[in-house]
Amino acid sequence: MQSYGQFCPVAKAAEILGERWTPLIIRELLCHPQSFNELRNGLPLISPTLLSNRLKTLEHRGVLRRECSEKGVAYCVTDAGEELRTVITEMGVWGQRWARSNLAREDLDPTLLMWDIHRRLDIKHLPAGRTVIRFEFDVCLKDPGYDIDLLIHSPLNVMTGVWMGDRALHEELKSHTIRLAGDTALKESLPDWFLLNVFSGVRPASDSDQGGRCGD
């Protein structure tokens, strides 16, 4: 990003964080260290070239570092990157309150939704060993190839709405908009292990929060 030509620390921070995709890359790495391909799972629309360029920039700026192991190269945040956790969290809170998605078609991404969901499953409420849970939306995704313990069928916009806190899970189950089939224990414990998005509890700003116009 071109320099703002200002000594102000807000300007200097914006030169690093204001580039397209950069806050989302940091968001992903604050979850845990990730490989290049794992980052692309959480950022499915970014091109490999652009992701590579952004990673190099953030490494040069001291926000992240590369760690090499027998499994390959993983990217993780430095102390400087970890200090951005509050910044990224507050961006999410602000976005959930003031820039809440209306779940337009272009915002619905089943791959990203499943990637986000898998990070929030509370596995201590799931049976020991392999448990296969299949989500069926109005799109076709890859079959896991194992016998299914629980089938969850839902329109994509409904499940995304539940995930983001715009819809109540129990109401969608009651109206059969979301349908479950399979293991009884898994169905009954769904609210325990199916944790929602970390920002799902942030309520949208009401019209009264907007305040009056200048001069009103």
Rank of each mutant, 00 (worst) to 15 (best):
M1R: 10
M1T: 09
Q2V: 14
S3N: 13
K12S: 09
A13V: 03
A13C: 12
A14E: 11
I16A: 05
L17M: 07
G18W: 04
G18L: 00
R20C: 12
L24K: 15
I25E: 10
I25N: 07
R27G: 08
R27S: 12
E28A: 15
E28G: 12
C31E: 12
H32D: 13
S35G: 13
N37H: 15
E38T: 02
L39K: 06
R40K: 10
N41W: 08
N41E: 12
G42Y: 14
G42M: 08
G42V: 02
P44L: 06
L45S: 14
I46D: 04
I46P: 03
T49V: 14
L50Q: 15
L55D: 06
K56T: 04
K56A: 10
K56S: 12
E59C: 07
E59H: 12
A74E: 13
E83V: 09
L84W: 03
R85P: 02
T86L: 12
I88D: 03
T89P: 08
T89D: 15
G92P: 07
G92S: 02
V93N: 00
W94F: 15
G95T: 02
R97D: 01
S101H: 06
L103Q: 01
A104E: 14
R105C: 09
R105H: 09
L113Q: 04
W115T: 05
W115N: 10
D116M: 10
I117V: 07
H118I: 02
L121N: 03
L121H: 06
H125I: 01
G129L: 01
R134S: 08
F135H: 05
E136H: 09
D138L: 06
D138A: 12
D138E: 13
C140Q: 09
G145S: 12
Y146V: 11
Y146A: 12
D149Q: 09
L150H: 07
L151Q: 08
L151M: 13
L151V: 05
I152W: 05
H153V: 13
V158A: 02
V162A: 00
W163L: 02
M164H: 02
A168L: 10
E171K: 01
E171P: 00
T177M: 06
I178K: 03
I178H: 03
R179H: 08
R179T: 03
L180A: 06
A181E: 14
A181W: 08
T184S: 07
T184Y: 13
K187I: 11
K187Y: 02
S189Q: 05
D192I: 00
D192H: 14
F194N: 00
V202E: 00
D207F: 14
S208I: 04
D209R: 03
G211E: 03
D216E: 15
D216G: 04
